[in-house]
Amino acid sequence: MATVYEAAGGADGMLRLAHAWHERVMADEVVSHAFSHGFRPDHTERLAAYWTEALGGPAAYSEVYGDETSVVRIHSGNGPHEEMDRLAIACFDQALTDTGLGTDDRLRAVLHDYFSWATTVTMAKYHGSRDQVPQGMTIPRWSWDGLVEP
């Protein structure tokens, strides 16, 4: 059976999804606030590399950019933001449709579940302070059955 990464189109599919999600987010007045401080010009490429690794592909993020600790720190210390998270997930669901990844119900469901979990659990865990994020975290892996325990 193909990994979620392979079923979503591999590296090209992840890049298309990252671009579509980023466009949706930047057009949303609430979610775009998360980027009001600016963002790296290669944000979508980095995001695609992260999703590649998380969804069963090669270690495209950790071999080039960093580990889970660095990603979680970027998303930490901003206080709770449930409404922004809900809207970011809605943007992701729309991006699945934009890229054609929403036509396969099983793939759509697993990608939605992954993004919802990552947004509301891993990226929201340390909303109090970036200093709370432990060192040496590895990027969690997600399969057709959900979180792959280390």
Rank of each mutant, 00 (worst) to 15 (best):
T52P: 00
V121I: 15
A49E: 10
R24C: 02
V72E: 08
F92I: 12
R24L: 01
H81G: 13
L96E: 04
Y126C: 03
A34G: 12
A18C: 00
P140F: 07
A88P: 01
G102W: 10
Y114P: 02
V4A: 01
M14Q: 15
V25P: 01
F92C: 02
S36N: 08
M26H: 01
H112F: 05
I74H: 08
D105L: 11
A20P: 00
V133K: 14
V25F: 02
E82K: 05
W142A: 03
R40K: 07
V25S: 10
A2I: 07
T52R: 13
V64C: 07
R24Q: 11
E45N: 12
M26N: 05
G56F: 08
Y61D: 14
T99R: 02
V4Y: 03
Y50P: 05
E45D: 12
V72Q: 12
A88S: 11
R86E: 12
D145F: 10
G136V: 07
L147S: 05
T122W: 09
E68F: 14
Y61I: 04
A48G: 09
R24I: 01
D93L: 12
S143L: 05
T122F: 05
A18L: 01
D12G: 11
L111T: 04
L147G: 04
M14L: 12
L17G: 00
E6M: 06
I139H: 08
A8G: 09
L147P: 06
P58D: 15
E6W: 07
M137A: 09
A49W: 04
G57E: 12
H81I: 08
R16F: 01
E29W: 07
V31E: 09
A2T: 11
E68P: 10
Y50F: 15
A118M: 06
V121R: 03
E149M: 08
R16C: 02
A90E: 13
A90Y: 00
M14A: 14
E149K: 13
I89G: 00
H19F: 06
T119Q: 01
E53K: 15
T99Y: 08
N78H: 09
G136E: 14
D42A: 13
L147W: 13
R16P: 01
R24W: 01
Y50R: 04
V148C: 09
D93C: 06
G100Q: 05
E83I: 15
S70I: 04
P134R: 07
A7G: 10
Q135I: 09
A11C: 04
A49I: 02
I139P: 05
S32T: 15
P41H: 02
A18K: 01
W144I: 04
D12F: 02
Q132C: 07
R46N: 06
P150H: 07
E82F: 15
D67N: 09
G146A: 03
D145P: 04
Y114V: 10
V71Y: 02
H81D: 15
V64K: 15
Y114W: 14
M26T: 07
P58E: 15
T119C: 03
L147K: 09
R130G: 13
W117K: 03
D85E: 11
